[in-house]
Design a protein around this nucleic acid. Structure first.
Lengths: 218, 218, 218, 218
DNA sequence: AATGAATGAGCCTTCATTCAT
DNA sequence: CATGAATGAAGGCTCATTCAT
């Protein structure tokens, strides 16, 4: 019933091939020929489905992002305490760290090379939306926790959400760059404990004393 | 009076120009011609100082990293409490967010495009060292805090350090991607408070229940 | 009627154009652009048929050599006396002096410029084979003459063949270098007479007294 | 008395270095930098002695040719029979085959690459003169032999000389191209015997029957 | 829709030559 | 005369894109 679909799902095949090749070689070093070869089609055929290399990349990116949507959407609506929701989200990220690393690789790829030029606007928007959605969901969860009294009242859910997203992104970056961190159970436990502690406890801080430095070519 | 020798310092000029152009256009989209023009030298002159485009990029990257060294090194040895050290480091990052964003951009650039190809090994090593150093320093600070009783004893300084680095990196990434976050005083305060709370308080956590999903082209 | 298939035969056209341009300007001074222009194709098209300039040159050379094969091969098997075979071969060379000059030019070109670098081995082999074949054929003819009693028995067919090839090559070289020799009928006659005389007569010789001299840069 | 000269014989040093490098790498693949390095001077200094790369090559070539002059000049005037003179000349060539190979290599180099472009005329002239002189000297020797009755009267000294030069050139070419010939004593003996036989005997020949063939790009 | 040969703009790199010191 | 950094023209090669079949 569903197997007849495959016969001519050229677009999907190309997209999959593109994902593979872009991740392996990077945007710039990926040739349309390589994508075609991986997809098992002729070079010219690519242009029947995508206007250009840029376009292929953009659509691939959009595809990946939208696939991530449903997954997270459901979390917010579940009927469990906020702290468990957070932990569950973290667990998800770690369980799919490999997957997020792959996506993240494409993100970097994208940012670094493709986002410039013409599509800049269109792409920046995609990024912003993706992050907003993320942040929004986390923010809701934190709000729920604050309202239920689980989390401290002084907490600004938006700031907290931004920071939580930042940790996760930072972890993904470290994973992508393969920087020698062992993301084992202790790491995961440490992260969760730290996070909840930060949301339930609160500490005093000092105001900063600024100083500056130069970067070449600034 | 000390050194009127460097009448022009071509190498520095080229490096500065390269930093500017690479950051503006990305590695792949940067032409040697553009760098030369920006530096105010002839195209051929670049090759009197750098063997290739790759080499130029690598040396630029190395330059930037090494410039960051001294800056952070001193922090560890200062005679102030661990929590203040951490806050100071955070303050520094925020104060120089623009600078770190620039560096980070180059890092992404680097990872995404330049690190592949031949120099992969050499470059991966540079990355790993950079992160290790970072982590190492933070880890020392956390250790100091644990020893002095400021921070909770259960904390694993290495895990904590990794996480702290992750937050900071995540923030830098968000800054680079310009994702709509306002890194104002509240954000800074929120971060510092959360951080210290996490280090001084401690919470209970739940074990994860895993689930998986696919990425196109895997 | 037999093959309307090769509507354009790009490869052949490029090869022909390359032969023309290489001969006219030499390997180093020949640009791919010039070859493309001469062939009436776009610069990039050359690389659909030949991997590189070197490759183009090599294939051109191979083509020319192989074209020369059949021509000479038949001579050995013809049912005429050895002396006539030799004369016929000489006649052929003279009749096609222009052609051989062209080939020779490419050979010099080749030796002087292209054979260095990477393909040295592959190319040296081509040379050696070409010469061996030549020599082998002449050697056979001389052998036939010696066996039939036409030529003197003391003659070593291999040495004789080498020398005959040398004269012919020398003539081609002079023709290539355009050194002011008139290759008219008298010259041809003189060569043939001298050759046959040398093979039928035999003279006394003296042992050499050696002396040496220097070349700059040795 | 003569050793003070060396102190500043920069020109000679450069010339020697050029000979070495040109022979090793070929004209096109030789950089002025390499010549300078080999000569132990700075790149710019070359231009104090030679107008250009071409000029350097030309002067090197002229130098080598003129060095060959004296050597052969004396032979003609010696008071020995013509056949011995010829044999002596042949012996000389063989004794110095290595040297002639070196020169020949430069000749090919020159012809193949440098002779084109502007200096074509000047260079062609040098070639022609070199060959003429060669031929002239041999021609004289043959004349002497014909006059003294040693050689046959029907022989045209000019044609004979051309042919003798051709053999020698052919041998040098084979030596340069390193084509698998063993230039041992038998080869030398065979050459000398054949040569003298050709000059003292005489044979009947047949008129040629022409046929043609094509070269790609003609 | 599929194909893949053809295209040509564009880029990195080399190197002979110049010239200020 | 010596030096070597600076120059810039020139060329080989790649590859996204087009288009005739």
């Amino acid at each position: 019933m569903s197997s007849v679909k495959r016969t001519t799902d050229r677009r999907g095949a190309i997209l999959a091939a593109a994902g593979k090749v872009f991740r392996a070689h990077g945007y710039a070093a990926t040739t349309m020929e390589a994508v075609a070869a991986e997809a098992g089609v002729a070079k010219g055929s690519l242009y029947n489905y995508f206007r250009s290399k840029q376009d292929l990349f953009s659509q691939l990116f959009a595809e990946i992002i939208s696939a991530d949507e449903a997954d997270v959407e459901q979390l917010v609506t579940e009927a469990i305490p906020a702290d468990e929701k957070l932990q569950k989200r973290i667990d998800n990220v770690f369980a799919q760290l490999e997957r997020y690393t792959a996506i993240g690789g494409l993100v970097l790829e994208f940012w670094a090379t493709a986002a410039r030029q013409q599509h800049k606007g269109e792409m920046a928007e995609m990024f912003e939306q993706m992050f907003s959605r993320w942040r929004g969901r986390i923010s809701e969860i934190v709000s729920q926790g604050v309202e239920s009294g689980q989390f401290r009242a002084e907490i600004d859910p938006n700031v907290a959400a931004s920071l939580i997203v930042a940790v996760v992104d930072g972890i993904i970056v470290q994973s992508i760059l393969d920087v020698g961190v062992d993301f084992g159970p202790e790491y995961l436990a440490g992260l969760k404990k730290g996070l909840l502690a930060a949301l339930t406890a609160w500490a005093d801080t000092k105001p900063p004393e600024y100083n500056q430095q130069q970067v070449p070519g600034e």
